[in-house]
């Protein structure tokens, strides 16, 4: 009887300890999950902003200006050649 009682006390203390340990662990995990969810959200927000910025910077209106400054123009006739035709972009002297 006394042994049983001792065991029960030990079991109670043990389970109480475990319960608290699990409890704190759960809270820590929940906190961690929350942190990660927030980090994901933040990353998604950043991605959306970066995507918009990228699209804004790569908009044709802006690129065209720089391209023209570099001497580039829309593709036009004279810049296309078939396999059998001489390369229209090759300087004449190299023939």
């Amino acid at each position: 009887m006394r042994i049983l009682l001792t065991l029960a006390v030990i079991a109670t203390l043990g389970s109480a300890f475990t319960l608290y340990a699990v409890n704190y662990e759960t809270r820590a995990i929940a906190e961690d999950v929350k942190r990660k969810v927030r980090a994901i959200e933040k990353a998604q927000h950043d991605i959306s902003i970066l995507k918009a910025e990228r699209a804004h910077l790569a908009r044709p209106e802006r690129i065209a200006k720089y391209a023209r400054e570099l001497g580039l123009v829309p593709a036009k006739r004279g810049q296309f050649a078939g396999y059998s035709e001489p390369d229209p972009l090759k300087p004449q002297s190299m023939k």
């Binding site: 829309p74 593709a75 036009k76 006739r77 004279g78 810049q79 296309f80 035709e85 229209p88």
Partner: peptide, 16 residues
Amino acid sequence: IARVAPLLGYRVGGRE
């Protein structure tokens, strides 16, 4: 057409 055809995969033909 001359502007967009190359973008749509068409070759603007003929030598200048």
